[in-house]
Simulated assay, not measured.
Amino acid sequence: MTSRPTPGLTRLNAAEDSAARAALRTICASEAWVTAVLARRPYSDTRALCAAGDTATAALTAADLAEAMAGHPPIGRPEPGDPRSAREQRGMADAPAALRAEMLELNLAYQERFGHVFLICATGLTADRMRDALRHRIGNTPEREREIVREELGKINRIRLAGLAEAPDDEGAPPP
């Protein structure tokens, strides 16, 4: 992360509230999170933006977390037509059919137990590691799992915020 304003960050800082809100909503589906990050503009650098995202993530209520998770597709089923979703879940792309079927079964069991998708920062993880994490986490208490979900959401948001801030003038950031 850079310690100076970047093209994407400059555009985010200068954008109309509605355009900045729309851009932030692509990072996290929680309105409370978007509002909190939007309220702290302008950002001096990517670190400051990510720190604001971390603060907003830490403040999310259970309902806010549920709203944020609703914006994430299940592991193994990236959002159709969304290159970022496919890139984030790249570790599942070449998984054998048996592992993909097991992930589907585990995802359904997890959703039944916790009432939401299994959320993990999948960037850089193999299909085996995601499956192992899912197997392990399905035994958590709802309270413990909610805190892990918050941590994973924070990781995802930081990666996405850095991508938004680092985007060249013509990519990713809202128009001014």
Rank of each mutant, 00 (worst) to 15 (best):
A14H: 11
Y43I: 09
A19M: 03
G163E: 10
P80A: 04
Q89L: 03
R135F: 01
R137T: 03
T123Y: 00
R100H: 06
A39S: 15
E31M: 06
E152V: 04
A66K: 12
N140R: 05
R90F: 05
R100A: 13
F118C: 02
D17F: 08
N157S: 13
M69A: 15
A62I: 06
A22Q: 13
G81I: 07
L9N: 09
T2G: 13
V117D: 02
P80R: 05
L119Q: 03
A173H: 05
T141F: 05
S44V: 15
G91H: 04
A86S: 10
R77K: 13
A23F: 10
E88P: 11
V149H: 01
A165G: 13
D64Q: 06
P174M: 00
S85G: 05
R135H: 08
L99G: 05
L106N: 01
N107F: 00
E67Y: 03
R25K: 14
L60V: 08
D82G: 03
R129D: 15
E112L: 07
H116I: 01
G71R: 10
A133N: 11
E152I: 04
A167M: 02
E147W: 02
A19F: 02
L134S: 00
L134E: 12
A36G: 07
D54C: 08
E67H: 05
D128T: 14
R129V: 03
E16T: 12
M69L: 14
V117F: 08
R137A: 06
N13G: 11
D82M: 04
L38P: 10
T123V: 14
L108G: 07
L108P: 00
R41E: 08
S44K: 14
G115N: 04
S85N: 04
E112C: 03
L104H: 11
R84A: 11
D94Y: 01
I27Q: 12
G91P: 05
V34P: 06
E79K: 15
A167T: 03
G91T: 00
L99R: 09
P168E: 00
A127I: 04
M130S: 02
R77Q: 14
W33R: 11
A95N: 01
A86E: 12
R160Y: 02
N13L: 07
T6V: 11
R47S: 14
I75Q: 06
A173W: 03
R21T: 13
T123G: 04
E147A: 08
P83S: 08
R160T: 07
Y43D: 10
A59L: 09
A32G: 09
K155E: 11
P7L: 06
D45P: 09
E152P: 01
T46M: 10
T141E: 08
G53F: 09
A162N: 11
T123Q: 13
I138P: 04
D64E: 04
D45H: 15
